[in-house]
């Protein structure tokens, strides 16, 4: 998705499932806060928090986790030579 065609092999075409999962992860995390009617309700309450407020606060850690998974998936699209280089860098 964020990885464009790199010759000689297009990573998106080479990993269709991973690419789709990445796209879904990113757009779902935008959609479920953009579409206000989903959560613009007072009930069910979470403790003393109306649903609207609880939902938005609980969303943040969720989006962090989803994006973390997306980033891990994106690594699979990276050509092996570069992945190895990244690993070396991290080891330092």
């Amino acid at each position: 998705m964020t990885q464009p065609a790199v010759k000689p092999r297009n990573p998106v075409a080479a990993h269709p499932v991973t690419s789709a999962a990445i796209a879904i992860g990113i757009f779902a995390s935008i959609f479920f806060t953009l579409w206000v009617p989903i959560y613009a309700r007072a009930t069910p309450k979470a403790g003393d928090f109306p649903f609207f407020y609880f939902y938005l606060l609980a969303y943040m850690p969720v989006v962090g986790i989803v994006l973390w998974i997306v980033i891990q998936l994106q690594k699979r699209l990276t050509p092996p030579s570069r992945a190895a280089a990244s690993a070396r860098e991290e080891a330092k």
Binding site: T2, I26, S29, T33, L56, G64, L67, I71
Partner: peptide, 21 residues
């Protein structure tokens, strides 16, 4: 006011699309 919370949720997936490039 509270839209800012929704805004700071959306900003990260959006930025992940273009910021690394």
């Amino acid at each position: 006011g509270f839209f800012a919370v929704s805004y700071t949720i959306m900003v990260f997936p959006i930025a992940l699309i273009f910021l690394p490039r």
